[in-house]
Design a binder for these strands. Sequence first.
DNA 1: CTATGGCACGGATT
DNA 2: AATCCGTGCCATAG
Length: 487
Amino acid sequence: MLLQNQRPQLRPQTTAHLAQTMALLELTVEELHQKVEAELARNPALELIDEFRCPTCHKILHNKQLCPTCTNTMGGSPDQPIVYLSSHEDFFVKPRISSYSNDLPDDNFAPDRETLPAYILRQVGPDLHVDDRQIAVHILTAIDEDGFLTIKPLEIALYHHVPLSRVEKIIHLIQHADPIGVGSAGPKDALLVQLEVLSEHLAIPHLAEKAILAGIELLSPHHLPELARHLNIPASQAKEIVRFISDNLNPFPGRAHWGDQTNAGSSEGQENTYHFPDVIISRATEEENTPLVVEIAMPFYGSLRVNPLFREALQEAPIEKSELWQEDLEQATLLVKCLQQRNHTIVRLMQTLVVKQRDFILYGDAYLKPITRADLADELEVHESTMSRAVSDKAVQLPNRRIIPLSMFFDRSLHIRTVLKQLIEQETYTLSDSQIAVLLLGMGFPVARRTVAKYRSIEGILPAHLRNRSYKPHLMLPQHNEQSVAV
DNA sequence: CTATGGCACGGATT
DNA sequence: AATCCGTGCCATAG
């Protein structure tokens, strides 16, 4: 349906515009950040000014945060989420949290993963003396959501009456388990361990270690000059180091990782299993009907523009440069436009998505509604391929601090799988697949027996005959959840 | 005979 | 056009 025309000023004008918008859409904040940075360095027509405009009312903001005017007027109800853009660099500084279920509220637990400590223990367990295991357990229980050790090794040593070196040996082992660097005292140590592991397979820039030692505050793109001075190297080299570090290392090892978490591999350390949130969703208040706050990471949005001085200078450009400059100017304009287009798309996407999947966001996997990208695409009046690009590879942090792929919002069967899992957890006797199928049907999910089997295997649940009763002390009454099958 | 996993097909999604 | 997903059919294990 091409009839609706609500946003004339943002419609792609040229094929180039279209192409680049598409390309940008696919990028993660981090990737986009890199691209913009590179362009900024290369193209003199592009300018970064310290000004940030509210995407809705276009007033200039100074804190790169919520626009007070808009918050008051439009922010507000459950179906009126507060959506705003935030600088990606600010994200980097904020500690981000893991997707593990450590201390999440019960109704919102991370479903398909064991807890981080258990995960690690499984890896290091075999390498440990029996006596050392409980020390390891002790250490693991003291790991916080970022993957850091919250107590001193010495305390542990004293508690168990063992030499400090022994504790340190165990910690060392833990640090080298996946996620690498977990169990370190802080970001600095975590980075160092990761660097060490990585160095076995990858060339690392010189002085990277020193750079880390200098302090992670200096690793932000903001502090390049300072870092360069500290290390006595040119800024360009410092930049390379910072780039390498942010590309390959993760200061918060406990942070989400998904994907092939199977190979706790010593190999392929640069496999991008760590994900930086492109969008952060949180609740405005603790109330039940709180509006959701959606924070979208957008590098430089609003503060990137075409340099007006450059435009002027173009008038008096020397002939031989004129063409080149003209090109730069066009590219700069294009980039800015495309960036706006990208932002606009993502904002609208999140706006509707957050409303539609509100229950999922707040109350967990069981409440995910199966939405297809195509549905949403035509609701937003964009091409479905555009949707696909916008969704792909992005990461979202939910209010419960889980970081999940944006594509999970479009999972067709997650809700059923979750129900299925609950069903099995609460089963009084081992249910067979066909029985489960019937139960699910009763609950309004018509699934074939065969499909139940598939879901089981996806969730890593064993078949009925191998699933010998794990005693559940709670909830053992055969209370049939008669879901009043009004048939 | 029942419960499951494998293979493969068709329709939906991307 | 390429992939993913739910299902049916069949072989196999228990």
